[in-house]
Design a protein around this nucleic acid. Structure first.
Length: 808
RNA sequence: GGGCCCGUGGUCCAGUGGUUAAGACGCCAGCUUUACACGCUAGAAACAGGAGUUCGAUUCUCCUCGGGCCCACCA
């Protein structure tokens, strides 16, 4: 299919406004889809191509079913990676406004690129329903959502240890960290307890100044007696207490450790648990604080200096190399420090129960994904830190009193605001009267932006009429890998704002891995780019590949063999349709089935079609595109093409007048099966289906619906070649008769193959023995068998065992 | 250490308390058959291992082994 054809059908669909959502249409039932807004930092990747194809097929199917489908597409534009990219392009140090504009420009450029690529895959989202997180309109909604949450007391500003990246100069959330293994020294240091030395082991001697306790395991006989006693820190000579804590492992180091604020998270936990005092150890630029003569030293330098000092004082017993993992910032690779600072938080820990409740009210596919969210909810330790010391983000829309910390929200009509530059909405603090009202300079974590998408797509807060109908969304599709972030935060925020679950159904997809089953990474260069696939394969082949990529929620290696297979089905469909078209062209074929002229094979394939329509629809209903397409392909290729078409060729080629009724019946059936199958594949392969359909109809496939599926009526009797059968008498139906007849033909083919003669070759006779119940039906189809198998004579007799013999 | 998922022909991937365990890629043997050799016909080839529940297990339970993901810890 040429690019012009894609253009042609896209234009037609656009002209007819087939994919636009009409919010005023209250007659049809709504189907609302919440799709992931891709992060606009580069090209579309294969995983995105996968879900775009997948969800688009579902959207098209639902339109077929008569739903009014609200299928928008958004773009997640804010974020640190774009700031990094812009810094790379334009250097550091641009003024805030200019820097923001450059980021905007960059994001817009990538957004346009990705949108082109998505549309290139045939995505049928409604362009009028697009949202972009960096627009004023979107930020207004985000800010409003925060004001509401603040009013509800779900937002607070507080001092709290946060994971901090000193390179980026910002706090980050737990999910922005990755683990990295590295080599470091484990140092054995002496503390004095009761005038005797107690050796502890630490990898962070530079934290010594913030040491607030020593900890040992209370079950450790060596140290049990020391619990509660005072210890003196070396260098700083601070008096600290020895505490007992189960988290201390007897086997590690010496079995004794120092507790600092905040060396690592275990320290924080212990500090809370044992109500220890805290000492700010490190400042925001990664330099030591409150550390006497070491104050102001970067961590690395301080480590050396402290070690040197300990050595000088003969307090360093030994130092051994060890491997350990540290948390680093996923964007820049800098080691994360914990430090206490003033941040904005959304209360989440206390709502874990509510989130679990909502999660149980949502249907999850696959079901096991629900457990991931529940596990995560159970593990929340801290509230959600939403402030980022970045520029390219939605400003946190608050001012606060520098004296008492009272939060001053903006007026709703002023949104969006940027408190970093805008004038405060109040001159003085209503709580303490202070005139020092300060605008917040921090921006929001990007998940704050994206955690209200189901509300935004439903029109919140402007079109509340629509919102009432379109929220909760019918479904969201998203990656299994971001359940604990996007899904979690969306459930939390939508519940806080709208008091409901965000969607009725969640469809979680896995990752597309490389051909060897490993994750695709830019650094390893094992990626497969959709752009490249699109130059090699028709769009429909990529879409069919996505549909055939196995069960939902499973990771799947990418495979060229599979996309080749998808492509070969498109070729098969195209070729077979050409064949049918060539036969029916210029013929007068009835619109309705010519019942009295239908032969056993016609009835068989029509019966099978009826069954397959039901099965495929059922699979679509369950969003199981794999099953839908597998069933359809097997039917179309191996039953319709390989058997039916071959079986009726002799009829449609016949020039004799007496055969014309049978020929017409066959042509009717050929056309009917083809056109029905087109409707079944159209959601997945819209271009191919539309192109073929256009040869028969002026009306777009997407203006119509699915082919009708009629439940079979038992006991109504059957007519084959003028012979009437009743199912009450014989336990069979068209499908069973067809299967027997096809078996006979297959056996003749086998016999020919065994004798190494061409299938086309005339043979003398076929002798068929069939059990009683099939005798009449087979006998009635004698002539057809003879013609199809090119046999001089066919004899049919009853026997207990079925058998076919052939005389050449 | 905790949790979750998965082990089906050489490869990928369906499926089921009773099936001749589907299909695709690959392989082997044939076939110019008036749509298609990106085709057609035929063929070889699989339920990780063990125990249990059951009349019957590939399917349910447990264990072992193997693979993956997530979380926690790593002073």
């Amino acid at each position: 299919m040429t690019p012009e054809l894609y253009e042609k059908w896209n234009n037609l669909w656009n002209e007819k406004k087939l994919f636009l959502f009409d919010g005023k249409d209250t007659k049809r039932k709504l189907f609302v889809i919440d799709t992931p807004p891709p992060f606009t930092s580069g090209e579309m990747h294969i995983g995105q191509a996968f879900w775009v194809c997948y969800i688009d097929a579902i959207a098209r199917y639902m339109r077929f079913k008569g739903f009014s489908v609200l299928y928008p597409q958004g773009w997640d534009t804010h974020g640190f990676p774009i700031e990094l990219a812009v810094e790379k392009l334009h250097g550091k140090g641009l003024p805030r406004q200019e820097f923001y504009s450059k980021c905007e420009e960059f994001a817009r450029e990538k957004l346009d690129l990705m949108k082109r690529q998505m549309l290139g895959l045939g995505a049928s989202f409604d362009p009028g329903r697009e949202y972009v997180t960096m627009t004023k309109d979107y930020m207004r909604r985000v800010q409003l959502s925060l004001i509401i949450m603040n009013d509800k007391g779900m937002l607070y500003r507080g001092r709290h240890p946060v994971e901090w990246c000193s390179y980026c100069g910002t706090s980050i959330a737990r999910e922005e960290t990755v683990e990295k293994e590295s080599e470091t020294a484990l140092n054995y240091i002496d503390f004095m307890v009761d005038g005797k030395p107690l050796t502890i082991a630490t990898t962070r001697p530079e934290m010594l100044h913030a040491c607030v306790a020593l900890a040992v395991n209370p079950k450790d006989d060596r140290y049990r007696g020391l619990i509660g006693k005072a210890a003196i820190t070396p260098i700083f000579s601070r008096k600290v207490t020895v505490i007992g804590d189960d988290s201390v492992e007897k086997e590690f180091g010496t079995g004794a450790e120092m507790v600092c604020t905040f060396g690592d998270k275990a320290d924080v936990t212990m500090a809370y648990k044992h109500k220890l005092e805290t000492i700010d150890a490190i400042d925001e630029s990664g330099k030591l604080k409150n550390a006497g003569k070491f104050t102001g030293m970067p961590v690395k330098d301080a480590r050396k200096a402290v070690i040197a000092e300990l050595q000088a004082q003969d307090n360093l017993k030994k130092s051994e190399q060890t491997r350990h993992t540290v948390k680093v910032h996923d964007r820049c690779g800098t080691k994360i420090e914990l430090l206490s600072s003033i941040q904005w938080f959304i209360r989440s820990k206390e709502f874990a129960g509510k989130i679990k409740e909502l999660a149980n009210d949502i249907s999850w596919a696959p079901e096991f994904a629900r457990q991931r969210l529940i596990d995560w909810s159970d593990f929340i330790e801290w509230d959600w830190n939403i402030s980022r010391k970045r520029v390219f983000g939605t400003p946190i829309p608050f001012w606060y009193c520098a004296k008492c910390g009272h939060v001053v929200p903006p007026f709703e009509e002023d949104l969006p605001v940027d408190p970093a530059v805008d004038k405060a909405p109040a001159k003085s603090c209503e709580k303490c009267g202070s005139h020092e009202i300060v605008g917040e300079r921090d921006t929001c974590d990007v998940w704050v932006d994206s955690s209200i998408t189901p509300m935004v797509v439903a029109g919140w807060p402007d079109d509340m009429e629509l919102f009432k109908r379109a929220f909760p969304a019918t479904m969201r599709i998203q990656g299994l890998d971001i359940v604990r972030t996007w899904a979690f935060y969306t459930i939390l925020r939508c519940w806080a704002l709208a008091d409901d679950k965000p969607w009725r159904q969640l469809l979680l997809h896995g990752m597309i891995l490389d051909t060897t089953g490993k994750e695709m990474h830019k650094s390893t260069g094992n990626g497969v780019s959709p752009e490249e696939l699109m130059t090699k394969y028709p769009v429909d082949a990529i879409r069919l590949w996505a549909a055939l990529s196995g069960g939902i929620g499973k990771d799947k290696p990418f495979s060229y063999e599979e996309i080749n297979f998808a492509n070969s089905f498109i070729v098969k469909l195209t070729n077979s349709s050409k064949f049918v078209k060539g036969l029916v062209a210029g013929k007068d074929i009835p619109h309705d089935a010519p019942h009295k002229d239908l032969g056993a094979f016609d009835l068989w394939i029509l019966d099978r079609l009826n069954t397959v329509v039901g099965e495929v629809e059922d699979a679509y209903e369950r969003m199981n595109l794999y099953e839908a397409m597998t069933k359809l392909i097997n039917f179309y290729w191996h039953e319709f093409c390989d058997y039916y078409i071959e079986n009726v060729k002799y009829r449609v080629y016949s020039k004799e007048a007496k055969d014309q009724a049978g020929a017409t019946a066959a042509l009717y059936t050929l056309r009917h099966v083809l056109l029905s199958c087109l409707r079944l594949v159209a959601p997945v392969m819209p271009y191919t289906a539309e192109e073929i359909n256009a040869e028969y109809s002026q009306v777009s496939l997407f203006e119509g619906g699915l082919p009708p599926h009629r439940p079979r009526e038992p006991g109504s009797g059957y007519i084959i070649n003028g012979v009437v059968f009743r199912s009450a008498v014989m336990d069979f139906d068209y499908t069973k008769v067809g299967a027997v007849l096809n078996d006979i033909i297959a056996d003749v083919r086998k016999a020919k193959a065994a004798k190494r003669i061409s299938l086309n070759k005339e043979i003398t006779s076929i002798n068929i023995k069939v059990p009683e119940e099939y005798y009449t039906a087979v006998l009635a189809s004698k002539d057809e068998i003879s013609q199809i198998c090119k046999s001089g004579s066919v004899s049919v007799s009853k026997d207990r065992e079925y058998s076919v013999t052939v005389d050449v």
